[in-house]
Simulated scan of single mutants.
Amino acid sequence: MLVVGDARPARRVLAQYLAVGAEVFHLGGPLPERGRAGNAEHAGAAGRAGNAEHAGHAAQTPIVHVHTVQPPRSPTAWSDLVSAVELVVLVEATAQTDALITAACLRHRTWLTREPAAETSAMGSVTLVGGGPGSAGLLTVAAMDALRRADVVFYDRLGPSDLLEKWAPGAELVDVGKAPGHHARPQREIERMLVAAALRGDTVVRLKGGDPFVFGRGGEEVIACREAGVAVTVIPGVTSAIAVPAAAGIPVTHRGVSRLFTVISGHTPIGDRDLTHLIGLGGTIVVLMGISTLGQMLGGLSRLGMRADMPVAIIERGFADDQRTTICSLDRADEMMRTTGVRSPAVVVIGDVVTLAARGDEAADALLREAAQFALFE
Rank of each mutant, 00 (worst) to 15 (best):
V174N: 06
L112G: 05
G29S: 09
R217F: 11
E189P: 10
L163C: 11
H183Q: 14
F154E: 04
L304H: 06
P62V: 02
G216D: 10
V152P: 04
L100N: 12
A231G: 10
E362C: 09
E86W: 01
V153I: 04
S240Y: 03
S265F: 06
A358G: 00
E370Q: 13
G47S: 08
S74V: 04
A10T: 03
A46D: 14
F25K: 14
A59Q: 13
T97F: 00
Q187L: 11
S344A: 15
I285T: 14
A55D: 13
H26A: 13
G209Q: 12
M310F: 00
D334C: 00
V204Q: 08
L128T: 01
A196S: 14
G280V: 00
A122C: 08
E221R: 08
T102D: 14
Q60M: 12
A197I: 00
D361W: 07
M306C: 02
M289Y: 07
P236E: 03
L275T: 06
R149C: 13
A117H: 03
P9E: 05
E86Q: 15
G38M: 05
G137H: 10
Y17M: 09
F377S: 15
L194N: 05
S258L: 03
F154G: 01
V85I: 11
D80N: 12
D272S: 14
G300C: 00
E227Y: 07
A37Q: 09
S83W: 00
H54K: 13
L81W: 05
R114W: 08
D272C: 02
V347G: 02
V214A: 07
T339M: 12
L367I: 02
A15Y: 00
A366E: 13
L199C: 10
N51R: 13
K208R: 11
G282D: 01
E86P: 01
L301C: 01
R217D: 06
V222Q: 08
T325P: 00
S265L: 06
S258H: 06
A241V: 03
I242T: 15
K166N: 12
R109W: 02
R36W: 10
V257Q: 11
C105T: 01
P71T: 12
V69L: 08
S74Y: 06
G35C: 03
G249R: 12
L281Q: 14
